[in-house]
Nucleic acid binder design. Structure first.
Lengths: 351, 351
DNA sequence: TGTTATAGTAAACGCGCGTTCATGGAGGTG
DNA sequence: CACCTCCATGAACGCGCGTTTACTATAACA
């Protein structure tokens, strides 16, 4: 069933059918109704490929979820729960406005080329980058071709430094620096001075920001940073276990630990509790993100709430708006985060 | 940049370029190399729409996540965590074999038409149905058009009853009946006779199967079913709270409760603990699915593990294999589930 | 050397639709 | 009644690529 068939059945020409489908004004109501009736009757749907080829937008955006290769089989699906919710939100927001979403998983340092490839092959109208390290070269390449992209969690400065101000770029961040400061101040107010950190991936913006805020806050409060208290994490539970074990076996334990995300905070708690270190009596813990599980574990995790849903909806809507209006300027949004105190923080006890 | 440009630059005709791209045998190695060099040099990527229009497969499958409309704003993303992991798994499995995935969210009873629409408009090679109630009419329609679809969790019987045996249909189920029987037998072996259930959505296969197993097992063990102990659930935490509260306020409490999924089990536990009913001392609880959170809450939830990752990977691979081979027969897979006893089951105490 | 098989390639058509341009007819005005 | 305007509509072209067909140069053979 193609538009030609509809035309024949309706006793008009293909052009008229096309005009009806695309809501052209200059077709009389009577003819329009006649054509619409046939379309309805035969369940006709125009072929998207042909439309795109003939110059129409394809109403499809690409979502690129950049994750870390795990190769742990089934566990993979657990690790990525956080990013999974991104997908749902983007799809929902886009579908609502009549856009389709083509989802890709990109593994860091491996298949960034899939991104520009998808743009060129599929002629998608725009893309959204979410997850770990976003490759600057890819971003440059895409924007240079004139395609719009939305990025969740990216360094504004990087945009200016690379003269990307006039690109069709949308960046949505959360105020991670402030959130981290707030969380750490809470620990300091409880009397803690020996405050450790499990860092995130330093190649990501939030990873850098959260660590930067850690250094800043401690310095601001005249607290020396103990290098032994800095655990190198990857935003994953995976290697957190070993790092925390090593911390426990070292000479001195901090009295508080700030983890750069909830997954690592939860992993740390598991190790502590298994090794007989009580939370929060012996050590206070704060996470970041406020994933659903944070409020369900015992003790409930104190953490920093990030409005992921709002951020992702925003980037999706802003992207589509950019697609339709063809804006050629960089725009950005920053969402406030909020420290949520639950049951993993306690006053420092004098030992 | 189109194939004509490549042809000109390589000093050959467009046909030769096409032959190179599509790996036709009858083009000498020298010419092939020359063309490939130009393609590489100019980063040429053939236009997918044009290829599809010219008769090529588009290597894209549609994923239709059927969920329940919530309209709870942000909470929506929490509710759907379970299905979100489906998306990731499908995308990963498909991408690995070189297929793209177009993701749609379908709300029950509302936009089933989006499914067939996507098939006709986008000319996707196949589709996967996941989530709540799958609309039989839609399935009939798609298969009648000759398109293959994979379904996770669907009644085999429905296939035969509707003469869909010769359709390109793939169904992947888990042995929910057996799993439920195993879980309930565990409760019975602990001495429980007053066993309640929070049902799932009865329009889904697993919802029906798990309830059927409940009736079967109790009858098999000569235990009368107390209608007051049957709570009507929807697989969501949402209305579970109220149902459980009502149960607590009624004359008699069961000594064990089987929830048709973990979300509802966890919701029930929350209510019980808030109302001073101890788990598992006062009431034993078992869930279904074994979502990540199940093992993290306190007390850790006893539940039935479903190999979601394997099932979803299977349906994706089977679908793509069907697409490429054009098999015209129904095929099905059933995955075993396994009861996992954690900390929410205890012997029945004599009161 | 003449003939036939063969490999390599170019030209042409079609995929389904959007769009432009030309045409014809209806209605209005002088 | 003649002329012009405007609106409805159909014919034709192009989007980029796959494929079929036909042609040409080369190799193989007698």
């Amino acid at each position: 069933m193609k538009s030609e068939d509809i035309a024949r059945l309706a006793g008009v020409s293909r052009s008229t059918v096309s005009r009806v489908i695309n809501n052209y004004p200059n077709v009389p109501e009577k003819t329009r109704a006649k054509v619409l009736k046939i379309i309805e009757e035969y369940n006709y749907e125009p072929n998207t490929s042909a439309r795109i080829l003939a110059g129409k937008s394809n109403n499809t955006i690409g979502l690129f979820v950049i994750s870390v290769s795990e190769n742990d089989g089934p566990s993979k699906i657990y690790q990525s729960t956080y990013y999974s919710t991104f997908i749902n939100t983007v799809v929902d927001a886009a579908n609502t406005i009549g856009y389709y979403v083509l989802v890709h998983t990109i593994y860091c340092d491996k298949d960034y080329s899939k991104i520009s490839q998808s743009f060129m092959q599929k002629r998608i109208s725009g893309g959204i980058l979410v997850g770990n390290e976003k490759d600057l070269d890819t971003i440059k390449k895409i924007t240079k071709m004139g395609y719009p992209i939305g990025i969740v969690d990216y360094d504004f400065g990087e945009i200016e430094r690379n003269n990307l101000n006039n690109s069709r770029l949308i960046v949505v961040n959360s105020s991670d620096f402030d959130g981290t400061v707030e969380a750490l101040n809470h620990l300091i107010n409880l009397g803690h001075k020996d405050i450790g950190i499990i860092t995130g991936r330093m190649g990501t913006y939030s990873g850098k920001e959260r660590y930067r805020a850690y250094e800043y806050t401690l310095e601001e409060n005249n607290i020396d940073i103990n290098p032994d208290f800095i655990l190198k994490g990857e935003f994953l539970k995976k290697n957190t276990y070993d790092e925390v074990k090593r911390l426990i076996n070292s000479k001195k334990l901090p009295t508080a630990l700030f983890a750069c995300n909830d997954d690592m905070a939860i992993a740390a708690m598991e190790v502590f509790m298994k090794e007989g270190v009580r939370v929060p009596e012996d050590i206070s813990i704060i996470g970041f993100d406020d994933i659903p599980m944070a409020s369900h574990i015992k003790p409930a995790l104190s953490t920093v709430n990030v409005p992921v849903y709002d951020m992702v909806t925003q980037v999706t809507e802003a992207l589509i708006s950019n697609i339709e209006q063809g804006t050629k300027a960089f725009s950005s949004f920053t969402y406030p985060v909020k420290f949520v105190d639950r049951d993993t923080c306690a006053k420092k006890r004098s030992r």
